[in-house]
């Protein structure tokens, strides 16, 4: 049960129930679709870039608690960041959920996203936690094919 509480922390359950930045914005500059064929999770990420900076980021989709909360908290984290900063945060987040050792400064940079640390004990759920992140990478770097976690 302790592993479970570690995975389904209050903050994750809250973002699952009330996802932030949910819905399609009127004029996104970039968008990308992500799909996890294992569980059928789908996500679409919308970006409004102002030069190199993320002015707005929103998402739509259907998925499990981990993928929904991850997408929701990701949008909060990436708003206002540069593309390079987004890439760095994604790399740190990926290390966190796959259980790679994270230097303290990387963890500090992740802030509230550290609640996803419990995912490392559930290898089957890593794809759920990273779906929205892979999708935002595709949107940022202009990949047009839908992202699949398979």
């Amino acid at each position: 049960m302790s592993n479970l509480r570690e995975l389904y922390q209050e903050l994750i359950l809250d973002h699952n129930k009330n996802p932030r930045n949910f819905g399609r914005p009127p004029h996104p500059t970039h968008e990308a679709h992500g799909y996890n064929p294992l569980c059928g999770d789908r996500v679409t990420v919308y970006l409004s870039l102002d030069g190199d900076r993320v002015e707005d980021v929103r998402f739509e989709g259907k998925g499990c608690a981990i993928s929904t909360a991850s997408a929701s908290m990701m949008t909060q984290m990436l708003k206002g960041k540069t593309v390079a900063e987004c890439d760095a945060i994604f790399s740190n987040f990926h290390d966190l959920v796959t259980g790679k050792s994270c230097p303290v400064e990387s963890l500090n940079q992740l802030g509230k996203l550290a609640v996803f640390g419990g995912v490392r004990d559930f290898p089957a759920r890593v794809k759920c936690a990273t779906l929205a992140w892979h999708t935002v990478q595709a949107a940022l770097h202009g990949q047009t094919d839908p992202v699949s976690t398979e």
Partner: peptide, 21 residues
């Protein structure tokens, strides 16, 4: 209110194997 994948993970922690998806 609960995605099947989350049901599967929670049941697994109780030693119960089901399929989700």
């Amino acid at each position: 209110g609960v995605h099947p994948h989350d049901i599967g993970t929670i049941l697994d922690q109780e030693g119960i194997a089901i399929r989700t998806g």
